[in-house]
Design a protein around this nucleic acid. Structure first.
Length: 180
DNA sequence: CACAAGATTGACT
DNA sequence: GTCAATCTTGTGT
C-alpha cells in the first residue's frame, strides 16, 4: 500500500484518507472501516492542535514520521485516534472522526455494546477498531493497525469547521465524504 | 503542589 | 435538550 500521500500537509492527507479502508487486528479479530469523516490539525501554528504548545509525552508521536499512529485519551474516558502526516519534527495529524464498518461487524457490535452508531464519532471509531493508548506511537502496517485500501477515485467531500474545539474554530479543516 | 479545561459519549429529563 | 463521567496537560501559586 502506497502511503506516501500521508507525507503531505495534513489537509491534503486528510482528503486522501476519505474513502480509505483502515484495518485493525486486535485479539484475533479483524475489523475494517471505510473512513468518511476526518479533521486536519496543523501543529505549532494551530491553536486547536495538541502540538500548539510544547512537546510532551502525550503528543510525542505527532513529531514522528508520516504514518505514525497517535492516540490520546479524551475527556478521561474515550480514546481518539489520529494518523500523523507531514515530515519528522513537523507535528501535523489527521483525526479520524467517522467511518462505516466494512468487515468485522459482529466484533464491532460486541465492542460497542449496541447494533448501531458503530463508528460515527472519533471515540466510537477508535473503540470499534479496538485501538487504545498502547497503539500510540506505532507505525501503520507494523502494529495492530494498517491501511488496506485507498479511494479508487477523487472522493467527493464537503468542508466545514472542526468539531468540539474552542480555538481555531474558523479554520475549515473538517472533511466529510458526500457519498457515505 | 492545586486546579481548570478538554479534538466525547451515552443516559436521562 | 441537559448533564455527568474521568484523566492528563498546562498554567498559576
Amino acid at each position: 500500500m502506497d502511503l506516501s500521500f500521508l507525507a503531505e500537509d495534513s489537509p491534503s492527507a486528510a482528503i486522501g484518507l476519505l474513502g480509505a479502508v483502515i484495518t485493525s487486528v486486535v485479539d484475533g479479530e479483524t475489523v475494517s472501516l471505510r473512513l468518511n469523516e476526518v479533521e486536519a490539525y496543523l501543529g505549532r501554528d494551530d491553536p486547536a492542535s495538541h502540538a500548539y504548545r510544547s512537546r510532551t509525552a502525550r503528543n510525542d508521536p505527532m513529531y514522528g514520521p508520516a504514518g505514525t499512529v497517535y492516540v490520546y485519551r479524551s475527556y478521561g474516558i474515550h480514546w481518539c485516534m489520529n494518523l500523523v502526516t507531514a515530515r519528522v519534527d513537523e507535528p501535523q495529524a489527521v483525526l479520524l472522526r467517522g467511518g462505516s464498518v466494512v468487515e468485522g461487524t459482529n466484533t464491532v457490535i460486541e465492542r460497542r455494546g449496541r447494533p448501531d452508531h458503530l463508528a460515527d464519532g472519533p471515540g466510537k471509531l477508535t473503540q470499534a477498531l479496538g485501538v487504545t493508548g498502547s497503539d500510540s506511537g506505532s507505525m501503520l502496517g507494523a502494529g495492530r493497525v494498517s491501511i488496506t485500501c485507498l479511494p479508487v477515485s477523487e472522493p467527493a467531500y464537503t468542508i466545514t469547521p472542526r468539531i468540539g474545539i474552542s480555538a481555531g474554530v474558523d479554520a475549515l479543516l473538517r472533511f466529510v465524504a458526500v457519498d457515505r
